[in-house]
Design a protein around this nucleic acid. Structure first.
Lengths: 189, 189
DNA sequence: TAGATGACCAAAAAGGTTTTCTAGTCATTT
DNA sequence: AAATGACTAGAAAACCTTTTTGGTCATCTA
């Protein structure tokens, strides 16, 4: 495996496990079995390395979501499939959970910035999907950006915030059902 | 005006303006024109004084919301009226805005706790209203607590979070329209 | 001699200590 | 009997010291 990939893998592992702030460049170098200086021949600095990894994650999310969608499927079934994929994604990709946590707890400026980028990317992606279904005439003509924003915030509230005030987390089924029953349902003509 | 009310007024003013942490008991005493010791003859401590004020605010919110609702009105019009009242309320009662801000920024434990109480009170109130309309058969049989929770989180996202990533805040009309168009609409049979 | 390396440095963060501030008390006053 | 504000203990802020860490670059190695 080439050194750059070695470093990316090591950094992803460490960021996912310890977060941005608690991950040191020395640590990454050690895990990747390279000298620290080597990292800097591939990545300008820690922040850029982090951003590249997060960008990779966003690409993967898009990929997974896109895969879950059937080109000729109805809005209802595709929305459901994509949502379920995103609920799964969360479980396998700890990085997503970790950075949202760190943004809330530690307030690391870099992380805050990156979380914003992620949110923006997700909203844009979802907005485009909504727009497509509006064009198709399958769903109502709504402010697609606002709806996309609302979907993201709802998702995060149910997935991350609910268990802060309640003993047990919501199951994927409960989350899926409530979103289906409210926002998705309201869109269908 | 009696001393207790004088103190409550002064404290409300100071908490609304500076938040919980930045308000000192000396300050409240000075504004209220009483000796600091006097505060402690009416209120056990700073925390209790704060809670009493917030409890008062919750009562007022309930009062306003209840007033906005017509006993024989449809779900649609009452939901809209109550939502508009809450959007107004926010403008006049800076305390609500302030404590939600302080909970996010400063993480003062007392404030965190109190915000939780407020949220719980609101969710319960909204849940009961939803249940009433389910009974009436005007809206679908949904998990009313979850929907109430979702409404609150949506409200807060649109009112507080949107402008963190966008140049201009959403207008009351935009907020009202989107909530109406999504969550409220999905409930109606 | 091109690419990798880790000792090195400046700057930031953590840790520890002193000073200031403030919630809450209570002896004195009204 | 009720109100007060000087007082205190403990919390928070400010300050200084030490350690850590991101980033560099002279040296090494293949």
């Amino acid at each position: 495996m080439d050194r750059k990939q070695e470093i990316l893998t090591a950094a992803t592992k460490s960021f996912s496990l310890f977060g941005y702030k608690a991950t040191t460049m020395d640590q990454i170098a050690k895990i990747a079995n390279v000298g620290k200086g080597t990292i800097y021949t591939f990545f300008e600095n820690k922040e850029v390395l982090f951003q590249e990894i997060v960008l990779q994650m966003i690409a993967e999310m898009k990929h997974e979501a896109t895969n879950a969608i059937k080109e000729d499927g109805s809005f209802q079934e595709n929305a459901h499939a994509a949502l379920m994929k995103m609920l799964e994604f969360r479980e396998t990709h700890q990085l997503f959970v970790k950075i949202i946590d760190e943004e809330k707890e530690l307030r690391t400026p870099t992380v805050q910035q990156v979380v914003q980028q992620v949110e923006q990317a997700i909203v844009l992606f979802v907005k485009e999907k909504i727009d497509k279904y509006i064009e198709k005439g399958e769903i109502r003509q709504v402010n697609s950006e606002l709806v996309a924003y609302l979907l993201l915030k709802t998702y995060l509230a149910l997935v991350n915030d609910w268990n802060l005030t309640h003993d047990e987390s919501l199951s994927e089924d409960e989350i899926s059902t409530i979103i289906q029953d409210t926002i998705f349902r309201s869109l269908i003509i």
